[in-house]
Amino acid sequence: MEVRTIKVFTTVDNINLHTQVVDMSMTYGQQFGPTYLDGADVTKIKPHNSHEGKTFYVLPNDDTLRVEAFEYYHTTDPSFLGRYMSALNHTKKWKYPQVNGLTSIKWADNNCYLATALLTLQQIELKFNPPALQDAYYRARAGEAANFCALILAYCNKTVGELGDVRETMSYLFQHANLDSCKRVLNVVCKTCGQQQTTLKGVEAVMYMGTLSYEQFKKGVQIPCTCGKQATKYLVQQESPFVMMSAPPAQYELKHGTFTCASEYTGNYQCGHYKHITSKETLYCIDGALLTKSSEYKGPITDVFYKENSYTTTIK
């Protein structure tokens, strides 16, 4: 009895394709271990004539594949690729409408935090270190965002349907971005203890939790000093293409032309909904596939993004 075979390709990165001759009487799992086709788990399936010449994702289970996976995804987590594939199996079914010149995501599976993050990423200057993220990001900007969303979920250790947080998501993504040249110098002034300067680099240099107003941050924000008295913390120097200011959701007025974009969060910790506000020729609110415009805006804002380049204080 002759062994019926077909020729397929296996890959971990969709760049390096490895030619395989597979036995049609055995499952993919018996031949390769966990195997995925377009995100779908085909591990328990036997090869079919229609699979001839198709590319299958496999887990990096030998040295060659491990090197290829690390170079593309910059992670050695053995569960990463499987999590990416199972997320992709959902995100490829989502709709990605162009809204006001940006790629958004039609609401499904509690994905409003991903839509808000995706919209924000198209408006701030950011370059990702893992080629996987950078490639998928370019495709997302062009309207094909399924891979990018699935990668975000995998890097953030999230599953489809789980509630997510924009600030946490951005923080994970910033860790995989090139923020080497970003720098922030802060000064804390206390009447009792004097003053202390701190220099922050990388992710810490672009994120701040405690106030939404970048102007206020430049002037000074009140913080408790270690001595128990009130101290003032203010920005001395900022070198970065953008800054992200966050605070627990509270009524906040966004003035046209003073910011790049913002995240609105309605609801409580267990259950809520994100919308995205962007400042173009007027203010726009993007909620999944829905767009509304207004000249002014007041609502429960939790993150505001500002364009920056270089700032030095005039406070002496």
Rank of each mutant, 00 (worst) to 15 (best):
Y172L: 15
G210R: 07
Y72P: 03
V58A: 07
I105F: 00
G272W: 00
T19L: 11
K92A: 10
A247W: 06
P97G: 11
P130W: 02
S246E: 05
I286V: 07
V189G: 06
Q196I: 09
V243K: 00
N129V: 07
E125K: 12
T278G: 10
N157D: 10
K46V: 14
T55P: 05
Q31M: 12
I152F: 08
E2M: 09
P78H: 12
L235S: 01
E253K: 02
T103F: 05
T198P: 01
F174A: 01
F70P: 03
C182K: 03
F259R: 00
V12F: 09
T11I: 15
Y72V: 05
S213T: 06
E296M: 06
K218W: 00
Y137W: 05
G29Q: 08
Y36R: 06
T258F: 02
P130V: 08
L173G: 06
M207R: 03
K46S: 12
G143T: 03
G220F: 00
I124T: 03
Y269D: 15
R141E: 12
N147V: 08
L37Q: 13
T64Q: 10
A289W: 03
F70I: 12
C193H: 12
V243T: 00
Y72D: 07
G220A: 02
G272D: 02
I6L: 14
F128I: 05
K191I: 07
A136I: 03
Y28F: 14
G101T: 02
I15A: 00
T211Y: 01
E215F: 08
N111S: 01
C190F: 03
T260I: 15
V99H: 10
E253M: 10
Y96G: 11
T159I: 11
T91E: 04
Q222W: 04
K183C: 04
E215K: 07
N110Y: 03
G39P: 03
D41W: 04
K219V: 07
A142G: 14
K7P: 10
M244E: 01
G53W: 11
L163G: 10
E162K: 00
Y73M: 00
V221K: 02
F305T: 00
H90V: 12
R4M: 06
Y73H: 01
E68G: 09
H48P: 11
L81R: 02
E162P: 00
N178A: 10
P241G: 09
Q197I: 10
L153V: 04
T159G: 09
E281T: 06
I315N: 15
A146I: 03
R167Q: 10
F174Y: 06
I152N: 00
Y214P: 01
Y297N: 02
W107C: 02
Q216V: 05
K7H: 09
M85C: 09
T35N: 09
R83E: 00
Q251H: 11
V3D: 12
I105V: 06
T312Y: 10
L254M: 07
R139N: 10
A289I: 12
V185D: 01
T91G: 01
A262P: 01
T313H: 14
T199M: 08
C190D: 00
T292C: 04
L254C: 00
G220N: 02
G82C: 14
Q20T: 10
E68T: 04
P60M: 01
L65Y: 06
Y284P: 05
V189L: 08
I15K: 09
G272R: 00
T232S: 07
S171P: 01
K233P: 01
Y265N: 07
E281H: 02
A250G: 13
G33A: 08
T116Q: 08
Q31Y: 12
G164C: 05
R141L: 11
K275D: 03
T211M: 04
Y57K: 03
A117G: 05
E68Y: 06
V185Y: 01
M209D: 01
N178H: 04
L126G: 06
G82Y: 10
Y137C: 04
T302W: 00
F305R: 02
Q20L: 09
V99G: 00
E162V: 04
C261K: 04
P248L: 08
F70L: 15
A69F: 14
R83G: 00
Q20D: 05
I301N: 02
F148E: 01
V189T: 10
G257N: 01
K7T: 13
G228L: 03
G272L: 00
L88V: 00
Y28Q: 05
H51R: 07
D180T: 11
V203W: 14
H176R: 10
S171N: 12
K255V: 15
T266D: 10
K106W: 10
Q196E: 13
G228A: 03
N89M: 11
T19G: 14
T43I: 02
L153T: 06
D38I: 09
K293C: 13
L212Y: 10
R139H: 10
D38N: 09
Q175P: 10
A142F: 10
D165W: 01
D77I: 05
V243L: 05
P131A: 02
D165N: 15
N16L: 04
Y297D: 00
A262W: 01
M26Y: 10
P300F: 14
H273K: 02
K44Q: 14
S86D: 14
Q251R: 05
A140P: 03
L290A: 14
C271F: 15
G220K: 01
R167D: 03
K46Q: 14
T5I: 12
Q175A: 08
K298Q: 15
L133K: 10
C261I: 00
V160M: 03
D63I: 03
T120A: 14
N129C: 04
I301K: 00
D62W: 04
V189N: 11
T198G: 05
G299R: 08
I15V: 15
T103N: 01
Q197L: 10
R139E: 12
N309L: 12
P34W: 13
K316R: 15
F217S: 04
I105W: 03
Q134G: 04
V243H: 05
R66W: 05
Y265R: 11
V3T: 13
L65G: 09
A145N: 03
T312H: 10
V21H: 14
Q222L: 11
T258R: 08
Q222A: 08
N89A: 13
N187Q: 14
F70K: 12
T169S: 07
T282K: 08
V67Y: 15
F305D: 00
E71D: 10
Q238P: 02
Y57C: 08
L102C: 03
Q20V: 12
T10H: 11
E168D: 10
D77V: 02
C156S: 07
N157K: 13
E71L: 03
A136H: 10
S79R: 12
R167H: 14
S181H: 15
L235N: 00
Y96C: 07
Y84K: 02
H276Q: 04
T55H: 11
T169M: 08
Q20N: 14
H48R: 12
E71C: 07
T314R: 15
T27Y: 11
D63W: 04
L81W: 13
L254K: 01
Q122I: 02
C271Y: 15
K95H: 12
M245L: 12
M85R: 02
N129A: 08
Y306T: 04
T11M: 05
S295Q: 14
G288F: 07
A262M: 05
A145I: 01
F128N: 04
C261V: 03
L126K: 04
S171E: 12
D303L: 09
L212V: 11
K93L: 12
V206N: 04
G29T: 01
Y172R: 11
A142P: 02
A87V: 06
K44S: 11
V188W: 00
T292S: 10
P97F: 07
